[in-house]
């Protein structure tokens, strides 16, 4: 069973739809036992960082999430909440990824909205653009596994042990997004 973390940030509908399109079943839950027992956990999020963190703490989901052992994927705000700190609401986050989340400097339109390419091992993935909508970004750090450039280079994807995070929306990124999501859903360790 795939579990989607239910909290006060964002619309889980699109993530749930994408998982079901790929033929997997999923539940949307904030029950710690259900999250601990799930094969995979997805942590979506569209919203504001400090209020989302406050909610997670209140429900004691912050400790539950940090201690999960199965493959875990944070999307957009979910990924940002997995970092050390976010400038959005000046809040300490889950601290899984050793990096900070900052607001884009106003040198271009903010948010970045639309399709952009990701760079892996110094190489730009052509024909594999993914969809981004965000005003804040995670700085590149040791756990960064792919970057993206908009105004500056930032983390497009991060990984540490069983924890994965993507700034883009695989659930809205066409076929390539579905492939990325599928690869996560069939991870086995």
């Amino acid at each position: 069973m795939i579990a989607i973390v239910k909290y006060n940030a964002g619309n889980v509908t699109s993530v749930k739809n994408a998982i079901e399109r790929l033929g997997f079943e999923c539940i949307v839950t904030d029950n710690s036992e259900e999250l601990q027992q799930a094969d995979k956990v997805i942590f979506p999020g569209v919203g504001e960082a400090s209020s989302a963190m406050a909610y997670l703490k209140e429900k004691e989901l912050d400790e539950v999430i940090k201690n999960l052992k199965q493959p875990f994927l944070g999307i957009c705000l979910g990924m940002q909440l997995m970092c050390d700190y976010s400038e959005e609401g000046n809040i300490d986050c889950l601290g899984i990824f050793k990096t900070k989340v900052k607001k884009f400097p106003p040198l271009d339109l903010v948010p970045q909205m639309g399709w952009n390419s990701i760079i892996q091992n110094g190489k730009e993935n052509e024909n594999e653009d993914v969809y981004f909508v965000h005003s804040y970004y995670a700085e590149v750090c040791e756990e960064t596994i792919a970057t993206c450039n908009y105004v500056l280079n930032f983390s497009a994807a991060l990984q540490k042990d069983n924890f994965y995070g993507v700034q883009f929306h695989p659930e809205k990124s066409g076929k390539i997004g579905e492939e990325i999501l599928y690869k996560f859903l069939i991870l086995n360790f």
Binding site: T13, N17, R21, Y131, S173, G174, E178
Partner: peptide, 30 residues
């Protein structure tokens, strides 16, 4: 549409209230 389509989509036309907008967003409109 939200179940079938894997790219972002916008819905418009005669949306007059927060409630109407909320319904469409919660049903899956981006």
């Amino acid at each position: 549409i939200a179940k079938e389509i894997n790219i972002p989509f916008t819905v418009g036309g005669g949306i007059n209230s927060l409630e109407e907008a909320a319904t469409l967003i919660l049903r899956g409109a981006d």
